[in-house]
Design a protein around this nucleic acid. Structure first.
Length: 572
DNA sequence: AGTCCGCGCGCG
DNA sequence: AAAGCGCGCGCGGACT
């Protein structure tokens, strides 16, 4: 039975009954997608027998408080949206606990994308939801019969869906991951609502200098080409070159005309041919500046919210097939590492940003998961794994000091070989990422020595290659059946376990937030940044460190978790 | 005008 | 025997 509630007395009666339910379906309709600017029009709540459609233009949100925090489990599809709206509109009341049908389905099918409520209803319940009213005018004074009907139908499928998803989770032995992801939703709402402050003046300076640099380098490129071709200079003394330097197709063609035939124009290829023509070095410089201008240019600032004046990025809780999060509009996870860029992200005045990251977390996880006794030993003795690896590869005693370049070489080896890189790949990887020259036969030799030193890793590779499904330590799965998926079979459980640990850290922050007046503002795979009042900086740093150690610590038992932490007014 | 894809590159 | 992995975004170019 559908009950359309348009006054406060009816709402209070409904809430009094609903608090005794163990779980309720919950959905909202809003006038738009922005929780800061837009309004909640309807809150639909379903039980096995009834559906309440509450008109929030006539009922104050606080009436629902007894239902939101504590009380029944809120079953929601894409709960970040609904809980985020309720959180913003109520000034800090979080819907909790949550069972998110979208996130749960994603854990089950383990791909990096989410599915709609319509798709789930069709597949699991054989119900065709009519989404015709989804984008109708929810701000209208009088809602139509079909709008109310639509709103109710959406809420009605949630409880049946939950039960089916839960059964499947048990069958797949994946309930721990489902529980982790559902507990995480409030923390993500919290972080997204917090946002982060951008110093637009500093950013503007960076944009200006990148733009000037790009213009200058483009001129130099054109001049350089003019010198080396018959095109020469035009009547005005300008280079008569009409190549678009942002077009790989045109650049490749031009270089070919200049006698440099290359497969592609990516950085490593150009770098390898740097000596072939003076234009190549200029092009590499231009590419650097052009990237700054295009991806980190003036458009980027448009993400500052007009009302909060902060950046509220869109955090995608399961953003990859391994279980990592992703981030968009804007992507806070691929900002240049240069201090100049990261310093643009500043705490509010009187506050600080505290940045903490896990040290070599994937290697630590690999050591434990494989397991590899020698690698584990290096970690629990607190030694530097890259130096240890260098010693083994060079046949030196562990106590002897290795040079910096030897350590660089070993770093490339550790990162590459653990995840199944071949000799050819290792040699170019070392060159491109660590500026270490390594011939292919040399790489092959290093590879052999590496697996002699770390036989646990070698055995683990063989074990993984025979699997058709990988699991993180918590149990997050990914189906990888092909021979071609070899390297994914190595990477997924490691990358995924690191993601699980970081997610648990975020959960712990949320669930112990009463300890410190602070909140997370961003996270980058092995790093969490929080904002805290300056006078609480030390306390907040300890809190963050503890949550991160405890979170990852549930998965890393035999190898210590190391968290590096710094506190400044900016992120840099 | 809008849509889609490959390339290239920023980050972990 | 051989095989690094995971994202989002801006651009050019081809297509409708």
């Amino acid at each position: 039975m559908i009950q359309y509630i348009t006054d406060i007395e009816q709402a209070i009666v409904a809430v009094k009954e609903l608090v005794f339910e163990s779980e309720i379906g919950l959905d909202i309709e809003t006038t738009g997608l922005d929780p800061i600017l837009d309004k909640i029009r309807l809150v639909q709540i379903s039980t096995p027998l009834n559906t309440y459609v509450i008109d929030m233009y006539h009922v104050p949100l606080s009436v629902l408080n007894p239902l939101l925090t504590g009380g029944p489990i809120k079953v929601i599809h894409n709960a970040k949206f609904d809980a985020g709206f309720l959180y913003a509109a109520s000034g800090g009341v979080m819907a909790e606990p949550i069972f998110d049908t979208m996130i749960t389905d994603q854990v089950l099918h383990h791909r990096g994308y989410a599915r709609s409520l319509k798709d789930l209803s069709k597949e699991y319940l054989d119900i065709d939801l009519d989404k015709g009213n989804q984008t109708s005018d929810w701000g209208a004074e009088h809602l139509s019969e079909s709008q109310i009907q639509y709103a109710a139908e959406d809420a009605n499928v949630l409880l049946p869906l939950k039960h089916i998803l839960e059964e499947k989770a048990v069958e797949l032995q994946i309930t721990a991951v489902v529980s982790l992801e559902n507990r995480l939703v409030p923390a993500i709402c919290w972080m997204e609502r917090s946002g982060v402050n951008l110093d637009s003046n500093l950013w503007g300076e960076l944009v200006k200098s990148a733009e000037a640099k790009a213009v200058r380098l483009k001129e130099e490129l054109n001049l350089s080409v003019a010198e080396h071709t018959s095109s020469g200079l035009d009547l005005f003394g300008n280079a008569a070159v009409s190549v678009n330097w942002d077009s790989p197709t045109q650049v490749k063609k031009l270089l070919s005309d200049l006698g440099v035939k290359i497969e592609n124009t990516r950085h490593s290829t150009l770098e390898a041919n740097r000596g072939e023509h003076p234009v190549i070095a200029l092009l590499l410089d231009y590419r650097g500046a052009a990237k700054k201008v295009s991806t980190y240019g003036t458009d980027w600032e448009k993400h500052v919210h007009p009302k909060s004046r902060r950046i509220h990025a869109n955090w995608v809780q399961i953003g990859s097939a391994t279980g990592r999060m992703s981030c968009k509009n804007p992507n806070m996870q691929n900002l240049p590492r240069e201090a100049a860029y990261r310093n643009c992200f500043r705490a509010a005045s009187g506050w600080v940003l505290i940045k903490a990251d896990y040290e070599q977390i994937e290697l630590r996880l690999a050591a434990e998961i494989a397991p590899d006794v020698r690698m584990k030993k290096a970690f629990y003795e607190g030694r530097d794994l890259h130096s240890v690896t260098a010693s083994y590869l060079l046949g030196k005693p562990e106590t002897e000091v290795v040079t910096d370049s030897q350590r660089q070489m070993a770093k490339a080896v550790n990162f590459g070989l653990i995840f199944g890189m071949g000799a050819k790949g290792l040699s170019s990887y070392a060159q491109n990422n660590f500026r270490v020259k390594m011939e292919e036969h040399e790489a092959a030799k290093i590879r052999r020595r590496y697996f002699e030193a770390y036989s646990g890793i070698k055995n683990w590779h063989e074990l993984q290659s025979r699997k058709r499904e990988t699991r993180t330590i918590l149990g997050r799965h990914r189906i990888l059946e092909g021979e071609r998926d070899y390297t994914n079979k190595l990477n997924s459980p490691i990358q995924g376990s690191a993601a699980d640990g970081l997610k648990l850290a975020l959960i712990k922050l949320w669930e112990t937030r009463h300890l410190v007046n602070a909140y997370p503002v961003l996270t980058v795979h092995d790093e969490i940044v929080i904002e805290a009042p300056k006078e609480l900086a030390e306390k907040a740093a300890e809190w963050l460190k503890r949550c991160m150690e405890d979170g990852m610590g549930e998965f890393l038992q035999e190898v210590p978790v190391a968290v590096d932490i710094t506190s400044k007014e900016s992120w840099g």
